[in-house]
Design a protein around this nucleic acid. Structure first.
Lengths: 143, 143
DNA sequence: CCTTGACCCTCCAGTGACTGGAGGCCCTAT
DNA sequence: ATAGGGCCTCCAGTCACTGGAGGGTCAAGG
């Protein structure tokens, strides 16, 4: 299989596949003409990588997961640890985004969005205080 | 004010402040010795930037927001548009992360996490089918 | 006057995970 | 012989910083 075939079959761009080779995640054979020559096992690894990346695992995680995948004497606890750490990272990120979202949604709802220059969004950014709210802080408080 | 003072008062690292100058977000004066010499207005801009970045606005957004902030004949609709676009980006990202989170949490809950090698997480990544259910997937495919 | 140490400067390189493009070889079909 | 599509490598750019090397500036203390 040439790179175009594995690209189609794995759903990964050819550029990404070359990059994965460059960083040592995969190691496809070469044809006499210099073209990469992929085996089914390479395709399988790339599909694995594509799914792991789609779940947000870092390349480092992927490297560790592939090694475990390939290791018959692994302990599932090792895999679970990586996944749980990643889950925690995701939760942290979601929390950050939801905090931003709450503040931003509040500001947006306070902005008339018309042809006049008065804007609680800019007021807030410029002052660092709840510009649209009076007294109680809904945005900056307990985050 | 030297950069250390604005750094302390704005909460932004000195490196970041220099970077903001480099990309043209701010333009502090210089002392005869070559040191940056910040006015109160520079500090105000940096505080604005710090808050906008904390809400996740890109540098491009910040540039636009600063320009609007500085423009008395702006229309608040322009500001609101930027904020709403950003809100939509945040929502997209949250949705993606929650989708990953759901899949990952399910896989983690299915994994014993003990000293045995059997692992539904790796099974799923390797096969691309649900891990908790017995997959009928054949790896063969056409060659 | 000299040293110490905190502060400041510029320039370069690296991060993560690709992505785009230039310039050029290989292969098949016409 | 040529046209096209696919493949190759190498370099640069993305985003928003961050780290570090190597060196200048300034006030206080000896």
């Amino acid at each position: 299989m040439n790179i175009g075939d594995v690209s189609r079959r794995s759903g990964l761009p050819a550029k990404t596949i070359r990059y994965y080779e460059e960083i040592g995640l995969i190691c496809p054979a070469r044809s006499p003409n210099g073209y990469r020559s992929f085996r089914e096992s390479d395709l399988h690894m790339l599909a694995f990588l594509g799914r792991a990346r789609a779940l947000g695992f870092t390349i480092g995680d992927c490297r560790a997961l592939l090694a475990l995948y390939d290791n018959d004497s692994r302990e599932s606890a090792q895999v679970k640890q990586i996944a749980e750490d990643h889950l925690a990272r995701i939760d942290t990120k979601i929390a950050q985004l939801q905090s931003m979202r709450a503040t931003l949604a509040h500001l947006v709802s306070c902005c008339a969005g018309d042809d006049r220059p008065d804007c609680p969004i800019l007021d807030d950014l410029g002052a660092g205080k709840g510009a649209a709210e009076s007294g109680q802080e809904a945005a900056a408080g307990g985050n």
